[in-house]
Structure formats: C-alpha cells, structure tokens
Nucleic acid binder design. Structure first.
Lengths: 357, 357
DNA sequence: ATGAAAGCGCTAACAA
DNA sequence: TTGTTAGCGCTTTCAT
C-alpha cells in the first residue's frame, strides 16, 4: 500500500515520468516485457537471449513512443561517454571546420561523438573548458593551442591529444602534426627558384609552435642562399593588422620582391597592401600564404599557398585518442603538406636591381 | 562483512572509484564529512546549513583531490542538463562563429552551456543530431536551416528556437530573425540612388527563407523604379560557382552596371569574375555583398555589404530558449541590419549608355 | 528466453 | 549543523 511519503521520495526531481520523455520502463510497459529486456534489445545485444518476436515488439513500442535513451543515465552507468572534446582556438575560416569534420567522421565510425569547444581566449589558456563544454567526456583533442593553454586542459585529468602543437611538450598522450617545416621549405624553394632574393616574412604575432617552426625554417632557407636577404614584420591574424604590417614591409627600402606570409589571412592583407600601394601581384610583388583556406581562392589572383590536410589531422587525432582510450600505443604522427602554386607568385620584376628608388 | 558478491554488484562498470577520478564521496571521506555535505558546499547552497569551517575543509579536500563533479550524474539527477544544442549548417566563414559566441555568452550568464553541432548536410535535414551531439540537452537552437531540416530537429521533442529562418513555420517555440528585407531595400536604394539601372542579382542557389526574402524584396524595389531592370543568376555559396554565375551575369548584353549578391562569398566571386573580365570594381561595375563577413574587408576594394548582428542573434536566440524553458512567453524578434558602404560601389560608368557593345 | 536487482554519482528532502 | 536516504534511467549479472 502507498506508504505516507517515505523520505527519499521527496527528493524526486521535477521531471518524473510525467515529463513526457519516455523512459525504457515506459517502453517495457507498453511491450509488456521487463525493462531489462528493453535495454538488451535496444542495445543490440539480444542475439540468442531474447526471442526475435519479443525483440520486434520492443522495437515497435520504442518507435511508437519516440523513445530516446537518456544519455546521462547511460554514461553514468557505463562510466564512459564515448565522447571527445575538440578544443579549437577560433572558428573563423574553414580550417577548424575541416579538422572537426575529420574528427567527427572518424569518431562516428567508432560510435563516438565529438563536441566542439571554440576557446574564447583564442590560442591562449582555455578558461574552464570542462565547465562550459556540457558533456561527459572521455578525452580531449586540442588543435593549435599554445603550450600554456594545454596545461589547463590537462588539469581535467583526461587523455589529451594535441594537433599542430609542439610535439616536445610531454603533456599529451599523443601528437599529430603537419610537416610545416617542409611546407615552408617548399615555399622558400619556390620563390628562391623563381629568382627572388629580397624576401619579406609576414609573421603571425602569435605564440604558437607552428609559427615558430615557420620562422626558423624560412630563416635557415634564406641563410643558405647566397645573396638572399630576409626582412620580418609581424602582425596579428587579422586583415587590419596584416595590412599595416605588410605596408611596412612593402615600403622598406629596397623593397622586397616577395612576401611570405604565415597564413592566408596575412597574405590577403599583403595583397590588399600591395594594391593600395599601386603594386601589382604578382608582377611587382609575389605573395604566398599558408593553410589554403577558402580565402586563398576567393582572391584574384588566387594565392600560392601550402595546403594542410586539415580533415586528416582531425581524423588522425581522433584515431590517436581512440588508441589511447583503448590502452594502445599512440605514436606521434606527422602529415605531409603540399605547396599549391597559383597566381600570386611569379618571377621578380626585371630591371629592378638596386636602382629602385 | 563482505558478503559473497550479491547480484547487482556484478553489473558494476569497469570504472569504479579505482578509476582515478575522484567522486564526491572521496571528497567526503577526506574532509571527514558526509557526502551530502560535500554536495551542498560545492553546489553553493550551504549558506546557513553548513558551518563555514566545514565548508572550507570540504573545498580544500575537493581542491586537493582535483575533484570535478560528474556531469552525467548531475543531469540525470536534475532531469535537466542546462545545455542547449546550437545547430548550424556550416562552419565556414565567421558568421556562425559569431552566432555561437553570442549564444554561449548569454548561456554562461545563466549557467548554461552550448554545444555546437555543425550539420554535415549543410542547410538540409540534419542526420540525427541527437545521436551525434553527445550531450544531454534541454533545447535546440537552429540557425539558418532549411524548413525540412527543422522537422528532424523537432523530432527530438525538445523546445526549438529558430534563427534566421521562416517565422511562418509553426514548428518553433520562438523565432529570431534579421530584417533582411530592410537590408535588401537599403542595398537597392543605395545602388538605385547612385544611378544604377541595369542590375544583376547574384542569388544563392540555396533553399532557405532568407534568400527567398532577399530575392523578392530586390525584385520589388527594382520593379518600383522606372527604367530599372533586373537580371538574375544563381550559384552555390562557393567561390567557384559564384565565379561562373557572375561571369554569366557580367557578359550579358547589355552589361549590368551593378551586381547585387546574396552573400559576401558570392560577392567575392563576382569581384573575381569582374577582374578576370578586365572590369574594374567599382569604376566599371559595382558589387555588393551581404553578411559582412571578415571576407568583406579582406578584399580590395572592400565590399559594400549588409552587416548582420550575428552575436546578437545568437544571444537573442539563447534568451528565447531560456524563456521557453522557464515557461515564459518567447516572442518573435526581428533584429535591425545596416548597410555598410565601402569601396566596391560607386556611380555607374558614364557614357555607357545603350552604346556599349 | 525473461525477470529481478543493484548501483553508477549526484541532489534534495527529511531526520536527528 | 550534519547525516541518512531515495532515486534519476540505464546496463549488466545472476536467477529463474
């Protein structure tokens, strides 16, 4: 008989079964089986344990009720959520969209989910991503984050895979990187091969492993080439900043004949600066980008740039995380990149020897 | 004494307390209080119920153990997750990043979270967003999705707020829109006022409310202006497609003097097409965009376009959802938009009367 | 082939 | 002021 409201009953949350959202018990009642049977059937592990007839009944009832398993209950019970957090510094541009797509695809193949967390702080320390990313998580994939940002991520005590970040940091369980050094070497080789000798490096004013590598590699390549010189200007990854940095570079005396940019956005700024200075690209000055964003082909002329296999880095990152979660060894992967030659580069203008002023 | 393994004990998931992740019971043990006290203290509702001294002890223990509450358990118990799903058709460009930022900011103010779901299908029907978005959800905000996509979203049985979508669809609990009609009127007025009479509409080949409104409004504005004529070409929202559609428009005879684009990406394609045809922007042909993406200022000349308050639509959407969840009435909001005049528009070329071929 | 039961970690009512 | 207790919905073992 109904006892007079026992202690614990009082603590019942506002959303009982009257909430409208059917539970597996509702399905069980309707199919006239036990709740456990429902779980078995819908969990797909009923083979040889539940009769096909019953299984069908259960599925019909679930369908009729529009039943969806409660995710919280499932992951509470399982202790795992089959979910990874993908932390990215920004959502601008299509690069991170592609990383996400790759990660999500691979995750789905293993019945995993990915929740995306665009860090409000950019590449810097993420402010409590675990508080904001409202999901139960099994692991974290961090793309292009600064080293000190990773510390905060590591606090979570979750397996961490880093993409496009310093592989020397020993915080991560696994690392996936691009061969950015090779990419920059390809750029330098392309321009140097075209005959350029006065180069400007439009560097990203961002403390990030990838940009450090780009700067060092470029400096080395130039140093190895007799007669070649390198001028460096830095700017934030915004059009506005790129414009002013590029303007500084292009008004230097003697004027560089090529501007090597750390990023396609910077390259867009460089093209804008060139045009405003009355310089034609590529006749008067060559410009290169990096990343091969959709922006690269939105410009006219289209940018010569380095294509990064963004989807693949996302996929490889997810695979690495799955390996770690399964207790398997997850190595450090380095993905090849490729220079895409388009309209923004050409031979340097002739007759513009030292007599340029 | 340890009984001989009772029934239910067998079902214990692999991750017990030995998993390494501390639970509130671990904190309780360490602080030498009951688990309930821990919950009270860390839940911030201990005022006048737990002595400050005890509270401090608990916090210290939690800190020392690196305790983080288990989200699954919390939302299972609460029956609500304080989390919204934001469904967007794509992550390219910075528009949706801004919508997300606005929604996340407002959510955070109410201790809510936002999980972002980039629909792999673009504006079309989302394939089981609830399966992929691995989080317990209280509601859904859908931005710029096609009408039939919303049906699938509504299946979830969750409150649905729509952004930038047909307000006539009765599926949503609330709607937030831009005054796109006004935006298009501003564009048309600007160009017509400059003296343009032969206009081309570079339309987005996307079945979406917002583009329908843009087309209708533009047609009306042109029809109301004596001597004005409108040519329409449609293309997907890619540079490549925009380029060919714009090329068709710009090779029409007589050539239009202005190209009104449904979107900044289309406008970038139009600029590219113009340049390839040897036409100068804006001297020979004016081009307008829509959205004011960062792309708009990456180009030279910068695009005259319509700025949409993206962050605000995200914030308003989140507010509407919070209202619905609280049982309050959530009206339909319409946000004002503004034409931003930049370098891509000017008076039509003179002396290019009918004698242009 | 099916059911009963336990308990994942948490919150909140109630007892003490 | 603090502890006890029930139970959110689910998965899984064991008993039937």
């Amino acid at each position: 008989m109904a006892s007079t409201r026992r202690p614990g009953t009082a603590g019942r949350p506002p959303t009982g079964t009257s909430d409208g959202r059917p539970t597996s018990r509702d399905v069980a009642r309707r199919a006239d089986v036990s709740q456990a049977t429902v779980s078995l059937v819908l969990g797909g592990k009923w083979q040889g344990r539940v009769s096909p007839r019953t299984a069908e009944t259960v599925r019909a009832a679930a369908q009729a009720l529009g039943y969806r398993p409660n995710l919280s209950a499932r992951s509470l019970r399982l202790g795992r959520a089959r979910t990874a957090l993908l932390v990215v510094p920004a959502l601008t541009g299509d690069y991170f969209a592609r990383v996400h797509a790759g990660a999500a695809r691979t995750a789905a193949e293993h019945d995993f989910g990915v929740v995306l967390y665009p860090s409000p702080e950019g590449t810097g320390p993420a402010v409590d991503p675990f508080g904001s990313a409202r999901a139960a998580l099994d692991g974290v994939i961090a793309s292009s984050m600064a080293p000190d940002a990773l510390a905060a991520l590591h606090e979570g005590g979750l397996p961490l895979v880093m993409l496009d970040t310093d592989p020397e940091g020993d915080r991560a369980a696994a690392t996936v990187n691009f061969d950015v050094a090779d990419g920059m070497r390809q750029v330098a080789g392309h321009l140097l091969g075209l005959g350029h000798r006065r180069l400007a490096h439009l560097a990203a004013a961002v403390d990030s492993w990838t940009f450090g590598v780009r700067a060092r590699t470029l400096a080395q390549a130039v140093a190895r080439t007799p007669g070649a010189e390198l001028l460096t200007e830095a700017g934030d990854l915004t059009i506005e900043d790129a414009l002013s940095a590029a303007t500084r570079a292009l008004t230097a005396v003697p004027r560089p004949t090529a501007v090597i940019c750390d990023d396609d956005v910077l390259a867009a700024g460089a093209c804008k600066a060139a045009r405003r200075l009355g310089l034609r690209v590529p006749e008067d000055v060559s410009v290169t980008g990096f990343d091969d964003l959709s922006l690269a082909t939105a410009l006219e002329p289209e940018l010569t740039t380095v294509r990064l296999p963004a989807e693949e880095v996302g996929a490889a990152g997810m695979r690495a995380l799955l390996d770690v979660l399964a207790g398997r060894e997850a190595g450090t992967a380095v993905l090849p990149v490729q220079l895409v030659r388009r309209g923004s580069t050409a031979e340097p203008p002739t007759g513009v020897r030292p007599c340029h002023r």
